[in-house]
Design a protein around this nucleic acid. Structure first.
Lengths: 189, 189
DNA sequence: CGCCGAGTTGAACTGAATCAAGAAACGTGG
DNA sequence: CCACGTTTCTTGATTCAGTTCAACTCGGCG
């Protein structure tokens, strides 16, 4: 049994076996190398992925500088939500920070899967609502905290970021420069 | 026919009449005065509203200062998403900036309504996805723009904010002080 | 008429960015 | 396994966008 199915089962133990099997069949396993893009800024995001293993980063380039919008880890679903949902060009790229094993599904196939069973549709909406909650948290985080507070928050709430993400990307995710992050880190220790 | 129903009809003209009627019956019309709260920070948000007329503002208080998170206008659905969805205390308050006429529905009733017809469930998810797209836009907006760029963006994309919202609230929505906003405005004219 | 909240303007201050230059870590090929 | 080039991280000096504090104006409302 593949890891996507195992994960879904752990999240939705009461999902009926047929739906679970349909999900397992609809996604296609793929491999990506470190540095490869899942999506390039400006393209329409036509796929959804499940990240079985690896780390990836969402980022936008504005005036030549990168802004990191998001990180995804093992057992996350990956897509550029706005682009995928509205079929418009993506404001962000998605790249692999490590080699990764993923499961891929097209917009079209996902739509079919969704319509095939109400439970699947509900599951998808559940994940998408979770994402929305995280976005709201992130807005408050970006808007109300100083550089040092942001770092300490991450240290406390998402230490896996600090362990696995290069500081330059972490800095741009926090909305500060790498120099500022470096100074904060040296003040704390 | 009430304004909620009229609005739903305009957004989803192919929705079947029974579903439309069910929606019309499930919501309860209410009136709110300028200054009244629909939700107080720290409380669990137990209701969803449809704003038929008026303006309201979402804000958080941190260290004694207000941060404006959102504004809603005529024909918007209103709730504190995170709190409503996760049933946890809200990080924000919602207040009326004007007198308003609204339609109210409880979490429980909404859940029932949602389960009563797949089309209604889809409609709700559609609105919630729209909101998610807006949140993503807002994050990029807050993270990549200078104070002046933010103001010009609002001027161009959401002039109704400038027309109807006091500058002090607009400033805190843009993540700047009222003084800075005032200076930007006088430089432009 | 006087008060109060909202908006403006000025001056000083500050957190973080920018610019610059080394030091450390990393990976790639020999 | 080491050497070399590249990228990442650190540290320092300077600059700057935006904040803070303070004083003043304006308009509405009791």
């Amino acid at each position: 049994m593949n890891q996507l199915v195992t994960y879904i089962q752990s999240v939705a133990p009461r999902l009926n076996p047929e739906a679970l099997e349909a999900i397992g069949l609809a996604f296609r396993p793929i491999h990506k190398e470190k540095g490869e893009l899942l999506l390039a800024q400006g393209d329409v995001c036509k796929d959804l992925y499940f990240l079985a293993e690896g780390i990836c980063r969402f980022y936008s380039i504005k005036d030549g500088t990168e802004v990191t919008n998001w990180f995804s880890f093992k057992n996350d679903f990956i897509t550029s939500f706005s682009s995928f949902f509205t079929k418009s060009p993506s404001y962000e790229s998605i790249e692999m920070l490590t080699n990764g094993s993923l499961y891929q599904i097209s917009y079209q196939k996902l739509a079919e899967l969704q319509e095939s069973a109400i439970e699947i549709e509900r599951l998808i909406n559940y994940f998408s609502n979770l994402y929305t909650v995280q976005l709201e948290n992130r807005i408050l985080f970006l808007q109300t905290m100083t550089a040092a507070e942001k770092y300490q928050m991450i240290l406390k709430e998402e230490p896996h970021l600090i362990q696995h993400i290069p500081n330059k990307h972490l800095a741009s995710y926090l909305g500060i420069t790498r120099e500022t992050l470096s100074r904060i880190r040296s003040n704390i220790n």
